[in-house]
Write a protein that binds this DNA or RNA. Structure first.
Ligand code: ZN
Ligand code: ZN
Ligand code: ZN
Ligand code: ZN
Lengths: 151, 151
DNA sequence: GATGATATGTTATAATATAACACTTCATCC
DNA sequence: GGATGAAGTGTTATATTATAACATATCATC
């Protein structure tokens, strides 16, 4: 699904978005740059500029705790589009394998809005990032502990 | 309240914590360093090391979206301490004046835990940061718009 | 074809964070 | 008391992430 680019992206923007979608895990600006050198990109600022625009379009999120970026895997309902996913993105980030899932939870969203309202706070953006061990890595760790268990 | 240092902090750790508590808003590591030069600190790594320990003790939080640090203004219930505040820290950050409040919300906390459980995710830490305009700055902005209103 | 808005490319630099290594301090064990 | 080990310190150098400044290019619109 993931909603095709709504407006026309420029060349650099398309390149960066494709690179982000290709890589399964969050990528830093310099990693993106390295991957796009053969496509003609030369300097960090080119990547940062594309990322800035992509974020503004809601196609990309920045993972603050990682200094990295991911392609959005939802429709957060920026326009009149039906079936928008309610609530802000909640990122679940594995500290071991870097696998990252983007979830949403309307209750968290509502709660946050309520909180902001109570504070008289004009909410612009929210960043919610959960860090820990993903299911796969948890299983693998348990396995290893078993194997290496001191008897 | 804010709970006095539970174990003995070292000199550098105390200095950094005091500096954080003194400044009302989040401070970057280099700003902290500059403020502590006359106390004998010389190099960034000294500040980062102190911050690392203080974070581990739960006395300091890192604001990921700001690359800055604040002293914790809650008791998140690390030990057997009674009257611990339930739920993870929710930071409300003004993008205009940098004023930052640390709140908690047990419902958000519960929801996050539930979400992690559903994913089979072993949750270590969570970072929740809301950005926008604080009440003061919202009021001031409205005022200015009034005054500068095109008639 | 002038104007303005947006995107680009290039070079240099700022801001944030860590690596590596030598030395000190302090508790513990023998 | 001296050996041992863990934690903290200080110092220098370097890595990583992000932006400033400036010149040029592209495209739509008038
Ligand atoms: Zn998204
Ligand atoms: Zn994992
Ligand atoms: Zn706190
Ligand atoms: Zn404000």
């Amino acid at each position: 699904m993931t909603a095709a680019p709504p407006k026309s992206l420029t060349r650099n923007q398309s390149l960066v978005l494709s690179a982000l979608r290709a890589g399964g895990t969050p990528q830093g600006a310099y990693a993106l740059l390295d991957g796009l050198r053969d496509q003609g990109l030369r300097a960090p600022v080119q990547v940062y500029r594309a990322l800035e625009r992509l974020q503004a379009l809601g196609l990309v999120h920045r993972l603050e705790s990682l200094n990295a970026f991911v392609a959005c895997s939802h429709d957060h309902g920026g326009t009149e589009d039906a079936e928008a996913t309610p609530g802000p993105a909640v990122f679940v980030i594995c500290e071991h394998c870097a696998a990252t899932r983007e979830l949403t939870d309307p209750i968290i969203g509502g709660r946050i809005e309520r909180l902001a309202r109570t504070e008289g706070f004009g909410l612009h953006t929210s960043s919610i990032e959960l860090r820990g061990l993903c299911a796969v890595c948890t299983a693998r760790e348990a396995e290893e502990t078993e194997t290496t268990a001191d008897p």
